[in-house]
Simulated assay, not measured.
Amino acid sequence: MAAPPAQELTLIGLCDGELDSKKYQSSYHTNKVGGQPDWLPLISRRYPRCGRCGAPLAHVVQVYCPLDASPYHRNLHLFACPGAECSAGPECWRVLRSQCLEAEVAAAQTPSRSVPAQAPPLSATDWCDTADDWGMDEGGDDGWGGGVKEDSQAPAPEAPAPEAEAVSDIDVSSQLQDLTLGESQEDVPVLRSFFISVMDESDLGEEEDDLQHAQRLLKEYEKREGVKVGELDDCGEGGSAEEKYEKTRARHGDAIFSRFMKKISPCPQQILRYCRGGKPLFVSEPPPNMAQMVSACGSCGGSRTFELQLMPALVSLLQRKDSGAEAELEFGTVVVYTCRNSCWTVGSRSALEEFCFVQADPDQQLFK
């Protein structure tokens, strides 16, 4: 049975305080900004390099995002070059996906325990309506750890043609050839780390409806009493969200950007949006051939689907560790597309590269 449209559920990530490594030991379950990446137990510690200047990339975001009908733990790691001339270039960003079975995690913790040779493969058609809950199921280590189903069963996908296998091997090799093992930690830029908390965007809509209802009651009161109390201000000092949006629209005259601003106006501090299988929120007009630009999965040759995007409010959080200086990262949004089948080989030690698309911000100071 096919899953219902994923667009109905959009999750937004918010900064939830600094992650102090002296007080809290993060793991692959942790959703965070910056810091060192927490790889799954079997995954090799690899640090990608900038495709433009060759410098090692800084770890920007880590998301724990298992799929509901999958037996795998699953992580996405985004990296970017903090160089002043690099952050806006697509070749200066990398996104890596890694997966691991619970049995493999247990075996890594207990070396004498053997790892099963086979595991039920993931079928995209078996996703249910909670497949995109981004770890929000109850019972997780930190409230986000749901979605890993060890007992999940799925029909085996058709084997790829020999030609597809050959292309896949070449593609994966070429994608990972500039990843380096054993990179000295001193050489890798580290950003200050912050927890990411999550909420359902539809909850914001309820708050907005309440505000509109209150404004309507106020206007009725003013009309009935013949007095002018003033407009409700839901943004504190400086005017309402609607007023700020109108000013932005007049300033830019860009329908795409105006739509972007209106969509995020209930919560402009959001740093990440997650809606696997949904539609990204572009900050400016995307290329007309956007669908063709999103390349096929380098591992299985299948198509990719939108999964998450980084938002402009994240930029002000990207500061170098033990330093007050901000990193040189500037962007409007970074849109991530991942393998629709989330393909994976049991026992693999190498993270797979996915596709990201970077848009510059037409007015970055609005978010600082």
Rank of each mutant, 00 (worst) to 15 (best):
Cys235His: 15
Pro280Gly: 02
Phe257Thr: 02
His252Lys: 14
Pro280Val: 03
Ser240Gly: 15
Gly298Ala: 10
Gly301Arg: 10
Ala250Phe: 01
Lys247Thr: 00
Cys235Ser: 14
Glu231Ile: 00
Arg273Gln: 09
Gly277His: 01
Arg259Gln: 14
Ile256Phe: 01
Ser258Trp: 02
Tyr245Asn: 06
Phe306Glu: 03
Gly238Pro: 13
Leu281Thr: 02
Cys267Asn: 09
Met311Trp: 01
Met290Ala: 10
Asp322Gly: 06
Gln292Asp: 13
Arg259Trp: 05
Glu231Gly: 06
Arg320Ile: 05
Thr333Phe: 00
Glu326His: 13
Gly253Tyr: 02
Ser303Ala: 15
Leu310Pro: 09
Ser284Gly: 14
Ala255Tyr: 04
Lys321Ala: 08
Ala313Phe: 02
Lys279Arg: 15
Gln270Met: 14
Lys244Cys: 06
Ala241Thr: 11
Leu232Arg: 03
Met261Cys: 12
Phe260Tyr: 15
Ser295Ala: 13
Met290Leu: 15
Lys321Ile: 00
Gly230Val: 07
Glu246Met: 07
Leu310His: 07
Ala291Pro: 06
Gln319Met: 08
Asp234Lys: 03
Asn289Lys: 13
Met293Val: 02
Leu232Val: 00
Gly277Cys: 07
Pro312Thr: 02
Met261Ala: 12
Leu314Phe: 03
Ile264Asn: 11
Lys244Ala: 05
Lys247Ile: 03
Tyr245Leu: 15
Tyr245Ile: 03
Met311Leu: 15
Gly278Cys: 08
Val294Glu: 11
Lys321Asp: 14
Arg276His: 03
Glu237Ile: 01
Pro288Arg: 12
Gly239Arg: 13
His252Met: 15
Cys267Ala: 14
Ile271Asp: 07
Ile271Lys: 05
Thr248Leu: 14
Arg251Val: 04
Thr248Val: 14
Val335Ser: 04
Thr248Asp: 12
Glu243Asn: 00
Ile256Asp: 11
Val283His: 02
Ala296His: 10
Lys247Trp: 08
Leu329Ala: 09
Phe257Ser: 02
Ser303Glu: 14
Lys263Trp: 08
Cys300Arg: 04
Met261Ile: 00
Cys297Phe: 08
Val334Ser: 07
Arg304Met: 14
Arg273Phe: 00
Leu308Met: 15
Gly302Val: 01
Ala250Val: 03
Leu318Ile: 05
Arg259Tyr: 05
Ala241Leu: 11
Val335Phe: 01
Glu246Cys: 04
Pro312His: 09
Thr248Pro: 04
Gly239Met: 09
Ser316Val: 01
Asn341Glu: 15
Leu272Thr: 09
Cys267Ser: 10
Cys267Ile: 12
Tyr274Ala: 08
Met290Ile: 12
